[in-house]
Amino acid sequence: MKQHMMKQLIAISYKNNKLDEKVVFKIACLLLRKDLKRYVRALKNYEKKRTVTVSLPSISRELIHKNEYLLKKIFPKKEILYKKDPLLMAGVRFSHHDTIFEMSLRNTLEQIAAHAGETDR
């Protein structure tokens, strides 16, 4: 199956910006094993592209409400998901498709160590 056909399949798998389970099931039944693998991968990639995952050390309804407008402005037309990650010390991580932005205490400490190492040389 050619790349543009796969893109068409992905496009028809969504209705009103939401994954249509019935269509996906129909497509999955018709595809060969090799193409099915590609289809699943392409769906996952598309999902990653349309969602932004915000990882926080702790999540509260108040915090989500407070930042909702700002995040919608930064990531327009993207679905925003919140994830709890206690390892993130005083920080936040945004994951969008294959790009990750991280601002945390741990990251700052690592950068200071790397900076000191560079100037030591």
Binding site: E102, I112, H115, T119
Partner: peptide
């Protein structure tokens, strides 16, 4: 002096 020259710009990763 070293700390003054340090710039904390956050971390941007590109993954695959």
């Amino acid at each position: 002096k070293r700390i003054h020259s340090f710039n904390d710009s956050g971390k941007k990763l590109n993954v695959g």
